[in-house]
Amino acid sequence: MSRPRERILSTAMILFHKQGYNNTGINQIIEEANVSKASFYQHFRSKDELCIEFLNKRYDYWVSELEQFTSEAKTIQEKIMKSFDFLVDMNEREDFRGCSFLNILSEIPADKEEIHKVIRYHKNKLRECFNEDVQDDIASAHIYLLFESSILTSQLYRSNELIEKSKIIVQEILKSSH
Protein backbone atom coordinates (compact mmCIF):
# COMPACT_ATOMS: atom_id res chain seq x y z
CA MET A 1 0.00 0.00 0.00
CA SER A 2 1.30 3.46 -0.87
CA ARG A 3 2.22 6.09 1.68
CA PRO A 4 -0.56 8.20 3.26
CA ARG A 5 0.36 11.41 1.39
CA GLU A 6 0.15 9.64 -1.98
CA ARG A 7 -3.13 7.97 -1.05
CA ILE A 8 -4.64 11.31 0.01
CA LEU A 9 -3.48 13.00 -3.18
CA SER A 10 -4.57 10.22 -5.54
CA THR A 11 -7.97 10.08 -3.82
CA ALA A 12 -8.33 13.86 -4.13
CA MET A 13 -7.28 13.66 -7.81
CA ILE A 14 -10.23 11.39 -8.52
CA LEU A 15 -12.80 13.05 -6.27
CA PHE A 16 -12.06 16.70 -7.11
CA HIS A 17 -12.10 15.85 -10.81
CA LYS A 18 -15.31 13.79 -10.73
CA GLN A 19 -17.32 15.48 -7.97
CA GLY A 20 -15.86 18.96 -7.87
CA TYR A 21 -14.24 20.85 -5.03
CA ASN A 22 -17.30 21.81 -2.99
CA ASN A 23 -18.93 18.36 -3.21
CA THR A 24 -15.81 16.65 -1.89
CA GLY A 25 -15.33 16.78 1.85
CA ILE A 26 -12.19 16.14 3.84
CA ASN A 27 -13.93 13.28 5.66
CA GLN A 28 -14.68 11.52 2.36
CA ILE A 29 -11.06 11.93 1.27
CA ILE A 30 -9.83 10.60 4.63
CA GLU A 31 -12.16 7.61 4.45
CA GLU A 32 -11.45 6.69 0.82
CA ALA A 33 -7.70 7.23 1.21
CA ASN A 34 -7.78 5.03 4.32
CA VAL A 35 -5.85 7.51 6.48
CA SER A 36 -6.49 9.08 9.86
CA LYS A 37 -7.59 12.68 10.27
CA ALA A 38 -4.26 13.38 12.01
CA SER A 39 -2.40 11.91 9.05
CA PHE A 40 -4.36 14.08 6.64
CA TYR A 41 -3.47 17.25 8.55
CA GLN A 42 0.12 16.13 8.92
CA HIS A 43 0.44 16.25 5.11
CA PHE A 44 -1.99 19.05 4.19
CA ARG A 45 -2.85 22.01 6.41
CA SER A 46 -6.22 22.47 4.69
CA LYS A 47 -8.49 21.40 1.87
CA ASP A 48 -7.29 24.48 -0.04
CA GLU A 49 -3.66 23.34 0.23
CA LEU A 50 -4.71 19.92 -1.08
CA CYS A 51 -6.61 21.63 -3.90
CA ILE A 52 -3.48 23.53 -4.96
CA GLU A 53 -1.51 20.29 -5.00
CA PHE A 54 -4.33 18.70 -7.04
CA LEU A 55 -4.23 21.56 -9.58
CA ASN A 56 -0.45 21.28 -9.97
CA LYS A 57 -0.59 17.50 -10.41
CA ARG A 58 -3.56 17.75 -12.77
CA TYR A 59 -1.70 20.32 -14.87
CA ASP A 60 1.39 18.10 -15.09
CA TYR A 61 -0.75 15.12 -16.10
CA TRP A 62 -2.76 17.12 -18.65
CA VAL A 63 0.29 18.73 -20.26
CA SER A 64 2.14 15.43 -20.52
CA GLU A 65 -0.91 13.85 -22.16
CA LEU A 66 -1.24 16.81 -24.56
CA GLU A 67 2.46 16.72 -25.45
CA GLN A 68 2.32 12.99 -26.08
CA PHE A 69 -0.82 13.39 -28.21
CA THR A 70 0.74 16.14 -30.37
CA SER A 71 4.30 14.80 -30.41
CA GLU A 72 4.20 13.45 -33.96
CA ALA A 73 3.01 16.69 -35.53
CA LYS A 74 5.37 17.85 -38.27
CA THR A 75 4.25 21.50 -38.40
CA ILE A 76 2.92 24.10 -35.98
CA GLN A 77 -0.43 24.03 -37.77
CA GLU A 78 -0.66 20.25 -37.38
CA LYS A 79 0.33 20.53 -33.70
CA ILE A 80 -2.41 23.08 -33.03
CA MET A 81 -5.02 21.02 -34.90
CA LYS A 82 -3.96 17.93 -32.95
CA SER A 83 -4.34 19.89 -29.69
CA PHE A 84 -8.03 20.35 -30.54
CA ASP A 85 -8.25 16.62 -31.36
CA PHE A 86 -6.76 16.05 -27.92
CA LEU A 87 -9.81 17.77 -26.40
CA VAL A 88 -12.04 15.28 -28.22
CA ASP A 89 -9.88 12.43 -26.91
CA MET A 90 -10.05 13.75 -23.33
CA ASN A 91 -13.83 14.15 -23.58
CA GLU A 92 -14.11 10.51 -24.59
CA ARG A 93 -11.75 9.34 -21.83
CA GLU A 94 -13.20 11.55 -19.10
CA ASP A 95 -16.87 11.63 -20.09
CA PHE A 96 -17.03 15.36 -20.90
CA ARG A 97 -15.94 16.40 -17.40
CA GLY A 98 -14.32 19.54 -18.82
CA CYS A 99 -11.46 21.52 -17.36
CA SER A 100 -10.64 20.83 -13.71
CA PHE A 101 -9.28 24.37 -13.39
CA LEU A 102 -12.39 26.09 -14.73
CA ASN A 103 -14.65 23.73 -12.78
CA ILE A 104 -12.91 24.66 -9.53
CA LEU A 105 -12.80 28.33 -10.53
CA SER A 106 -16.59 28.28 -10.84
CA GLU A 107 -16.91 26.78 -7.35
CA ILE A 108 -14.64 28.92 -5.23
CA PRO A 109 -15.10 32.47 -3.98
CA ALA A 110 -12.77 35.28 -5.04
CA ASP A 111 -11.15 35.42 -1.60
CA LYS A 112 -9.43 32.06 -2.13
CA GLU A 113 -6.57 34.00 -3.73
CA GLU A 114 -3.96 31.23 -3.60
CA ILE A 115 -6.15 28.86 -5.61
CA HIS A 116 -6.99 31.66 -8.07
CA LYS A 117 -3.26 32.39 -8.50
CA VAL A 118 -2.51 28.75 -9.30
CA ILE A 119 -5.34 28.57 -11.84
CA ARG A 120 -4.19 31.81 -13.54
CA TYR A 121 -0.59 30.63 -13.55
CA HIS A 122 -1.42 27.40 -15.37
CA LYS A 123 -3.81 29.09 -17.81
CA ASN A 124 -1.10 31.65 -18.60
CA LYS A 125 1.34 28.82 -19.32
CA LEU A 126 -1.14 27.44 -21.86
CA ARG A 127 -1.52 30.90 -23.42
CA GLU A 128 2.27 31.21 -23.64
CA CYS A 129 2.44 27.88 -25.49
CA PHE A 130 0.03 29.16 -28.14
CA ASN A 131 1.97 32.45 -28.30
CA GLU A 132 5.26 30.62 -28.86
CA ASP A 133 3.79 28.40 -31.55
CA VAL A 134 1.76 30.98 -33.46
CA GLN A 135 4.06 34.02 -33.12
CA ASP A 136 1.14 36.41 -33.75
CA ASP A 137 -0.40 37.96 -30.65
CA ILE A 138 -3.95 38.40 -31.97
CA ALA A 139 -4.06 35.04 -33.77
CA SER A 140 -2.69 33.15 -30.77
CA ALA A 141 -5.16 34.89 -28.43
CA HIS A 142 -8.00 33.94 -30.78
CA ILE A 143 -6.85 30.31 -30.90
CA TYR A 144 -6.43 30.19 -27.12
CA LEU A 145 -9.94 31.56 -26.62
CA LEU A 146 -11.35 29.00 -29.06
CA PHE A 147 -9.45 26.25 -27.23
CA GLU A 148 -10.81 27.25 -23.81
CA SER A 149 -14.35 27.77 -25.10
CA SER A 150 -14.18 24.40 -26.87
CA ILE A 151 -13.54 22.75 -23.52
CA LEU A 152 -16.44 24.59 -21.88
CA THR A 153 -18.99 24.16 -24.65
CA SER A 154 -18.18 20.49 -25.17
CA GLN A 155 -18.78 19.94 -21.45
CA LEU A 156 -22.00 21.96 -21.55
CA TYR A 157 -23.47 20.19 -24.58
CA ARG A 158 -21.72 16.84 -24.00
CA SER A 159 -20.71 16.99 -27.63
CA ASN A 160 -17.54 17.56 -29.67
CA GLU A 161 -19.44 19.46 -32.38
CA LEU A 162 -18.09 22.89 -31.45
CA ILE A 163 -14.54 21.56 -31.15
CA GLU A 164 -14.81 20.41 -34.76
CA LYS A 165 -16.17 23.82 -35.82
CA SER A 166 -13.38 25.55 -33.87
CA LYS A 167 -10.83 23.54 -35.84
CA ILE A 168 -12.22 24.98 -39.08
CA ILE A 169 -11.96 28.51 -37.65
CA VAL A 170 -8.41 27.82 -36.42
CA GLN A 171 -7.34 26.69 -39.89
CA GLU A 172 -8.58 30.00 -41.28
CA ILE A 173 -6.80 31.97 -38.55
CA LEU A 174 -3.55 30.14 -39.22
CA LYS A 175 -3.83 30.70 -42.98
CA SER A 176 -4.36 34.44 -42.56
CA SER A 177 -1.62 34.91 -39.95
CA HIS A 178 1.15 33.70 -42.27
Rank of each mutant, 00 (worst) to 15 (best):
E32S: 08
S149F: 05
H17T: 13
Q155K: 14
Q155A: 10
R3K: 14
L145G: 13
V63W: 13
S106L: 03
E94A: 03
E172I: 08
D89C: 12
V118C: 12
L126V: 11
T24I: 03
D95T: 11
N124G: 07
P4F: 04
L146I: 11
F69R: 08
L50E: 03
Y21C: 01
E164R: 11
Y121N: 09
I168T: 13
S149E: 14
I8V: 09
E53M: 02
E65G: 09
K57F: 02
R127L: 12
Q28M: 08
K82D: 05
F96W: 02
L126A: 06
K117P: 00
H17M: 11
V35E: 00
S159V: 11
A141R: 13
N124T: 09
R45V: 06
D133C: 06
E67N: 15
N34S: 12
Q28A: 13
N131R: 13
Q155F: 12
F69L: 06
L9N: 09
C51L: 10
L55W: 05
L105K: 12
S100I: 04
M13G: 10
K125F: 01
S71T: 10
F44Q: 00
W62N: 13
E128L: 11
K165Y: 09
I52L: 08
L152D: 12
V118P: 01
A139C: 05
N22M: 10
S176E: 13
K47E: 02
V134F: 03
F44E: 00
N103K: 12
A12G: 07
F84Y: 07
S46L: 03
M13V: 06
E148F: 01
T70A: 14
E72R: 09
E148Q: 10
I173G: 09
E172G: 13
F84Q: 06
E114G: 00
Q68E: 15
A141F: 11
L174K: 05
K125M: 12
V134C: 06
P4K: 06
L87Q: 15
T24S: 08
L174Q: 04
Q28T: 15
D137P: 12
Y41D: 01
I80V: 15
R127H: 04
N103D: 04
L174W: 06
I173H: 03
A73S: 15
Q171S: 14
E161S: 11
S106Q: 06
R3P: 06
F40I: 04
L87F: 08
Q135S: 12
D136H: 15
F40K: 07
L87H: 08
